[in-house]
Measured scan of single mutants.
Amino acid sequence: MKVMIRKTATGHSAYVAKKDLEELIVEMENPALWGGKVTLANGWQLELPAMAADTPLPITVEARKL
């Protein structure tokens, strides 16, 4: 699914347009965010693609819901 990742004042957030859902990312498998699992505030887990740590945000990526 397409997910937009952006930086907020409190960390990172994910927006899933198909579900009209925006949630804070509360847990990251990798400190650089990319190439691992993230957990959203509502409990969803997404697998993000591997990208460079300095990838500019906001960005829309293809993520997989676990």
Rank of each mutant, 00 (worst) to 15 (best):
L40F: 04
D20E: 11
H12Q: 05
G35E: 04
T8Y: 09
A53D: 12
Q45H: 09
A9F: 09
P49S: 05
V38A: 01
E22T: 11
G36W: 05
T39V: 11
L57R: 02
G43A: 03
M28I: 08
K18Q: 15
E23D: 06
E22R: 07
M4W: 05
G11Q: 05
E23G: 05
P31K: 11
W34P: 02
H12L: 14
R6D: 06
S13F: 14
T39Q: 07
N42G: 06
D20R: 12
E29M: 05
A53T: 10
E47C: 14
E47N: 07
G11C: 06
E22Y: 11
M1R: 02
E23Y: 15
M28K: 11
E62H: 12
L21G: 07
E22I: 08
I5C: 05
N42T: 03
Y15M: 08
R64G: 05
N30H: 12
M51F: 06
K2E: 13
M1C: 14
P49T: 04
A63S: 06
L48V: 03
V26P: 01
T55L: 05
M28A: 13
W44C: 12
V26N: 03
T10M: 13
A14H: 05
P58R: 04
R6S: 13
A50L: 12
S13K: 09
P31G: 11
M1W: 14
L46S: 00
A41L: 06
G11H: 05
E23V: 15
K37I: 14
L57Y: 08
W34I: 03
V61M: 03
I25A: 00
W34G: 01
A9Q: 11
T55G: 04
E62N: 13
T8M: 08
N30G: 06
L57I: 06
A17Y: 15
T8N: 09
A52Y: 07
N42Y: 03
P31D: 11
R64F: 12
T10Q: 13
L46Q: 00
K37Q: 08
A50I: 12
W44K: 00
L66Q: 06
K19F: 15
A14R: 02
D54T: 09
D20I: 07
V16C: 14
I25Y: 00
E27D: 12
E27T: 10
E27G: 10
A14W: 08
I5A: 01
A63N: 02
E22D: 12
A9I: 11
A52E: 11
A17R: 09
L66C: 10
E22S: 09
L33V: 06
L40S: 02
L24Q: 13
E47R: 09
A9L: 12
P49W: 05
E29V: 06
R64M: 11
K2H: 12
D20A: 11
A17S: 11
M1V: 13
A50E: 12
L33T: 03
W34C: 02
W44A: 02
M4D: 07
A63P: 04
A14C: 11
N42V: 04
I25M: 01
P58F: 07
S13Y: 15
Y15A: 07
T39W: 12
L66R: 07
D54C: 05
N30R: 09
K65N: 12
H12S: 03
V38R: 01
Y15C: 09
T55Y: 04
K7M: 10
V38S: 03
T60N: 06
G11A: 06
M4T: 15
K65I: 15
N30I: 06
K19Y: 15
L46A: 01
P56C: 07
D54Y: 06
P31I: 09
A14L: 14
L46Y: 07
L24P: 13
N42P: 00
K65V: 15
L66K: 05
A53V: 11
V61C: 04
E22A: 08
Y15P: 01
A52I: 06
R64Y: 12
E23T: 13
E23M: 15
L40A: 01
V61Q: 02
K7Q: 10
E29L: 06
P31M: 08
E47Q: 13
P49D: 03
K18R: 12
K2G: 06
A41N: 07
L46D: 01
M4F: 07
I59K: 08
I59Q: 10
K37H: 09
L66P: 05
K2N: 10
E29I: 03
E23A: 14
K65H: 13
K19D: 15
V38H: 00
R6G: 05
V61E: 01
G36H: 02
M4H: 08
H12A: 06
P49Y: 05
Y15D: 01
A41Q: 08
G43E: 00
T55S: 05
E23W: 15
L57S: 02
L66Y: 11
A17L: 15
R64V: 13
M28H: 12
L21Y: 08
E29S: 09
A52C: 07
E27V: 09
K18T: 15
A63D: 00
I5Q: 01
A32E: 14
D54F: 06
P58M: 05
P31F: 08
S13A: 12
W34N: 04
T55C: 05
N30S: 10
G43S: 02
A52M: 08
P58W: 07
R6A: 10
K18E: 15
E62Q: 12
L21V: 13
V38Q: 00
G35R: 02
N42C: 09
Y15G: 03
L48T: 00
R64N: 09
G36C: 04
R6H: 08
M28P: 00
N30A: 07
T8P: 00
W34R: 02
A53K: 10
E62V: 14
T55D: 02
D54S: 09
K2W: 14
M1Q: 05
T39I: 11
A9M: 10
L33W: 04
E23H: 13
G11V: 03
V61L: 07
A63G: 06
V61H: 02
I59N: 03
P49H: 04
T8S: 09
M1Y: 12
V26M: 07
K7P: 06
T55P: 06
K19R: 13
R64A: 08
V38K: 01
W44Q: 02
E27C: 13
L33S: 03
V61N: 00
D54A: 08
T39C: 08
S13L: 12
P49I: 06
L46G: 01
N30V: 07
E29N: 05
L57D: 03
T8K: 07
V38L: 03
I59C: 10
W44E: 04
A52T: 08
P58V: 04
N30P: 02
K19S: 15
L21T: 10
T39F: 07
Q45V: 15
Q45E: 12
V38M: 03
E47W: 14
M4E: 15
I59P: 01
A9E: 12
K7R: 12
A14S: 01
L48I: 06
K2C: 14
I25V: 07
M51W: 05
A32H: 14
A53P: 13
E62T: 14
M4G: 04
G11K: 01
W34H: 02
V26T: 10
Y15E: 05
P58K: 03
V3T: 02
